[in-house]
């Protein structure tokens, strides 16, 4: 069965959502579209035979990094552009675009799961999480160590910069 069009459809959803991220005026709307874009790219990963990368994309990118974004925007009012935050817009208008795109992705996923199009040759093209893990802690061990140092540096720098100092306040 030919399911190539599903990949192109998911890529189209990712493209539209990315354009809306760049062009939208409200930061929260842009973040919603960014979530949709990341989910669509995760769908592409799954179809390309990388289910582990797809899971990581959903969990780490759409789950953790975007929550950090939303948290910072809402807590510290990082709206930018000197315009008031418009949370009281019409409910439908705010959610319509991301809702349509997400429903499209959900229908594609349901189509893939119901038709079972990927079951027949699941063995052929998939790079499993086991292979990734073996390679990650074998030849790429040094890269993992460097990545851990990078994360530690990010933690320290984030703490240092976001901490409110007394001389920074009265400016």
């Amino acid at each position: 069965m030919n399911i190539d069009w599903v990949f192109y459809f998911a890529a189209l959803v990712a493209f539209i959502a990315s354009i809306k991220v760049v062009t939208s005026a409200n930061a929260i709307h842009a973040l919603l579209y960014l979530v949709v874009s990341l989910l669509a790219v995760a769908f592409c990963f799954y179809l390309l035979g990388a289910p582990f990368a797809a899971g990581l994309e959903v969990i780490v990118y759409a789950g953790a990094i975007l929550v950090l974004f939303v948290f910072a925007v809402m807590m510290f009012d990082l709206q930018g552009d000197n315009q008031p935050v418009l949370f009281q817009q019409s409910w439908l208008a705010t959610w319509f675009g991301p809702l349509i795109l997400t429903l499209t992705l959900a229908m594609l996923l349901a189509y893939i799961l119901v038709t079972g199009a990927t079951d027949s040759h699941i063995e052929v093209g998939v790079v499993s999480a086991k292979q990734v893990g073996i390679a990650l802690y074998g030849p790429y061990l040094l890269a993992v160590e460097i990545a851990s140092f990078l994360l530690l540096a990010g933690l320290l720098a984030g703490y240092h910069f976001a901490k409110s100092t007394s001389e920074g306040e009265h400016r």
Binding site: L68, F69, A72, F76, L78, G154, L155, A157, G158, Y159, H160, F161, A162
Partner: peptide, 8 residues
């Protein structure tokens, strides 16, 4: 993490 801290 660093970018959002700088933004704050």
């Amino acid at each position: 993490a660093i970018g959002l801290a700088l933004l704050i």
